[in-house]
Design a protein around this nucleic acid. Structure first.
Lengths: 171, 171
DNA sequence: CATTTTATGTCAGTCTTGTTGACTTTCCAA
DNA sequence: TTGGAAAGTCAACAAGACTGACATAAAATG
């Protein structure tokens, strides 16, 4: 009752059946279940360290862009600075993150992982990569390409831009 | 330093470069950003009703499987009964969900959406589908197939089984 | 029939992580 | 130089997850 109006559009073989509400619902549920699996392995490790996903996310993106500022991180993570601050404070106190006052602009803090922080980052990301690697391998390169393509369309354009800027320029 | 050992395996053109740590990291970040987009639209609606994602999930799966029991829902959602109970209590009190004592087994409660509940479910799922539909359309059917394939590999096998059982049997 | 197990609900308390509000320090531009 | 904007911090609160303990009712089992 919503979309099915125009099947058999192009040639007849490749129609728009993949856009039915039922197909969309299946994709929605797959996203839900997959995201649970996606976070499950790092979560186990985080429990041992009394950290949560918020800490994982901060660690990930600090590792990804060493020297990034708190404000940068806020834009990427999409939380309030107060929320991020609590997480960063814990990581700094525990010696996983180094927060250095900016040289040009002393209001800014530039964030770096310490050696200890890098060790945890490796553990976390390797756990997550292991699952992703298995999934990629089982699904094959073409499926992976489609996977990435759809994910990019689902995310907000701002994030897509950011993701691709990191993809090109990073490291 | 992890996986790149065996490229050029099959024929040389299609190698295993999609399994590098760098490719995996990009997929991981895409999952993170996409999930944010995935939940963003329903979240706006939920705010108006003073509900959260937990309520959305309960509503979704009750709509998906009318008459399901609390225990079923617990297994699907992967939360504790205390957590789910708080959500269900609110939904029942607000008249969105009907909880009926089982006829065969009177210990069980069978859950149904009321008319009011169905209205909210429609609003939420339509908001979510709108974004997914646009993403699917932009990415194309082959990409969607790959998307689904990779997601199924990422989720725990138990959930994959459940998802596919619903896919076949449902409605 | 007595006992155990299962399904559900509830109360209390904790933790993570999000929020808003108020505040300091620093920079910059009028 | 002064006032506003920006970056970051501290405090308090709320949602929603968790554990643990316990209650009730019904089913299953010996």
């Amino acid at each position: 009752m919503q979309e099915r109006g125009q099947p058999g559009q192009s040639s007849g073989g490749e129609n728009l059946l993949f856009l039915t509400d039922d197909q969309l619902r299946k994709g929605i549920e797959a996203m839900f279940f997959a995201y649970r699996g996606f976070t499950a392995d790092p979560d186990l490790i985080l429990d041992d360290h009394a950290y949560g996903r918020a800490h994982h996310r901060a660690i990930h993106f600090i590792n990804r862009s060493p020297g990034t500022t708190v404000n940068n991180l806020l834009n990427i993570l999409g939380v309030t600075k107060q929320s991020l601050n609590r997480v960063l404070r814990a990581l700094v106190e525990d010696g996983l993150v180094d927060s250095r006052v900016g040289e040009k602009d002393k209001r800014e803090r530039h964030l770096y992982l310490t050696d200890t922080g890098s060790v945890l980052e490796q553990k976390l990301s390797e756990a997550q990569r292991t699952r992703m690697r298995a999934a990629y391998r089982a699904a094959g390169p073409d499926a992976v390409q489609g996977f990435r393509r759809v994910l990019e369309q689902i995310m907000d354009p701002q994030m897509r831009k950011f993701l691709n800027s990191m993809t090109d320029g990073g490291r």
